[in-house]
């Protein structure tokens, strides 16, 4: 698929400044406390409650 250079550049910038991530991972709690500067957002299962830190258990053997 052809993706415009402008969009690729935007993704590159977002990735470069990203400090957290959003999906399909169980992540360290300290990561969640870092400020989201990239627009990458929070992650699934990360709500207001403390310790809701995991996300995607994948396909059953993870």
């Amino acid at each position: 698929m052809k993706i415009s250079k402008a969009l690729l550049k935007t993704i590159a910038v977002a990735v470069a400044v990203g400090v957290t991530q959003a999906s399909c991972t169980k992540i360290e709690e300290e990561l969640l406390q870092k400020k989201d500067e990239s627009g990458m957002g929070g992650k699934c299962g990360v709500g207001e409650k403390e310790n809701e830190t995991f996300d995607c258990p994948a396909c059953g053997m993870g």
């Binding site: 698929m1 993706i3 415009s4 969009l7 935007t10 993704i11 977002a14 959003a22 999906s23 399909c24 990239s38 627009g39 990458m40 957002g41 929070g42 992650k43 699934c44 299962g45 990360v46 709500g47 996300d55 995607c56």
Partner: peptide
């Protein structure tokens, strides 16, 4: 092709514009 786990962002009401554009491509 792109496979996206659409339910992996429950705490957000929307995704960033640039990611949305990627999905739409």
């Amino acid at each position: 092709g792109l496979e996206w786990s659409f339910d992996a962002l429950y705490d957000r009401s929307h995704v960033p514009d640039w990611f949305e554009e990627l999905l739409h491509v």
